[in-house]
Nucleic acid binder design. Sequence first.
RNA 1: GCCCCCGUAGCUCAACGGGAUAGAGCAACGGACUUCUAAUCCGUAGGUUGAGGGUUCGAGUCCUUCCGGGGGCGCCA
Length: 612
Amino acid sequence: MRSRHLRFDVPLNDDRDGFQMSLQQQLTEILSDAFEAEGVERSFGEVVVSQRPELADYQCNGALAAAKSTGRNPREIARGVAGRVDAPDLIAGIEIAGPGFLNLSVHDGHLASWVARMEKADRLNVAQVDDPRTIIVDYGGPNMSKALHVGHLRSAVIGESLKRIFRFLGYHTIGDIHIGDWGMPIGQLIIELEDRHPDLPYFDPEYDVSVDGPYPAESPVTLDDLSEMYPVITRRCAEDPEVAERARQATFDLQNGREGYLAVWKHFHDVSVAGQKKDFGALGVEFDVWYGESTVHDRLEPMVSELLGSGVARESEGAVVIDVAEPEDTKEFPPLLLTRSDGSYLYSTTDLATIDMRVADMEMGAGIYVVDARQSLHFEQVFRAARRAGYAPADVILEHVGFGTVNGKDGKPFKTREGGVLRLGDLIALIKEGARARLDEAHIAEEYPAAEREEIARQVGLAALKFGDLTNHRMSNYVFDIDRFSAFEGKTGPYLQYSAVRIKSILRKVAEAGLAPGPIIAPTVPQERALMLRLVRLEEIVYRAANLRAPNVVAEYAYEVATDLSRFYERCHILREENPERQASWIALIEVTLATHVVLLDLLGIEIPERM
RNA sequence: GCCCCCGUAGCUCAACGGGAUAGAGCAACGGACUUCUAAUCCGUAGGUUGAGGGUUCGAGUCCUUCCGGGGGCGCCA
């Protein structure tokens, strides 16, 4: 059984001390046994969280499904199963409802022992996968020639979260930014710079490093220059075929090792990476490697020759292509374009070579590409080509995890009121400013040192921004509304932080009062019970998020934990509680809740302030 | 023309591989601070899930036909 595993066909590591399953799994085992004893296939015993919390904690719908295959009455099956369930210490009640739902309520003592288990076990008793597979998460994907804008937010934030989720579950993960730094945009920037400053040594064909000395160490352009130049040159290329032809030539020359171009490319690369490190750093997005298209440039020429030699690739209209259509395709599948007719390389070329490199040199067991959903065809082509070329054996997972676009209120890709794109750096500054204003107007943290207020504003602003993105399902094209992304009330990142901060505050006062956590006892208040029931689901949630590649599952759950904590907080006053056993149990309970928050917010890439 | 994604409350979004009465936040209205932080909590109101047809005990979810939006379809990334 041990049903939870990622779609990598990898079993969960069961070598855990004590409780080896999640509560849900444990209930599923019991029900499966009962179904089996009743003469029905045990797979019908699957237990899920109740859709009607006022009726039950968990439910099993198997009797309904089994009715079809067995031809028996569903309520009769349910009755039979219910009669065979005998686990009084775990299941306090089992009832048949409606057409044949089995409603389960968990025994309070058992629930408390689960929370206690989380408190004592490592990692809140969340199992790690038993799989040495290396997962490379390819996200961020900035183009070297453009400053980061809101459109880059999704890949960065979703990719970062997925990487953290996989890592938390025990996978060896590598986050790779995969910079776009070897294609046509570079050729375009080169000729734009050449047109503006033809006197620069990089463009002098006569320049000889051995005679004239090395190229200047100082960059001829700043990041702002590049951002300004890029739209200019793309427009010029669109309007004038001759300019476009020169850009293509420059791209070819760069890729074939023209020294001056390589030298100026290096400058472009360095100023651009410096800017990206700043922006992604400000977002709290951390890449393990800063590779890019150019990383594989040495492999391109040999790769194309080899593929041509082996017959995987072929010439077509002067270009080199790989056919990737499969007989069972129902739709037309165009071949992957490996080189242009002038021999220069494309996005497809570097992507294919990158797969080869990742498998051969980085031991990639799974490649997760967190890239705009519009590129799905491209990735399907590249993945198929990688299989045909033998770069990616069948056991290596290649997966495009797409996401929707960030739109404005008009349904088109987001633009500022002035019609320009909103830079990521400006957006972060804007939201942080909003968070600071919120502190002022609500008279929060007035007595804190200025530096701490500043830090709180930063953390709160980023939380609002990230949660605002991650709470959406990744596939939906969401509407970017600055007001929503800088809201601090309701279902927002700051609410989650606030929940954690409240606990920290209580725990400080608890320590001052000389109180300490004690054994977690059975819940006596509905809000307390609801919180426990929520916490116990942590493992299910994280695995589910990983399997669906959906951080919004974690975001949603984190919000629910925070809500349950708030309700508990309103109802149960810990410091004033007179029953010492209950008080000590509550202290332990909020400690587990805080630990859960710490895990969840970390998976979302959200920091928790000490106070706010 | 072919293919992919999307369409859910006034707005922005969820909905745990088909389950019971489709849930949250915001906005609106009404309550709760001498009480561990009110960035909170409680309540009211808000829906023919774009439209039709089908599959079955049961459909927002699967199939199908339309309508509407976004995107892709060899020398862009």
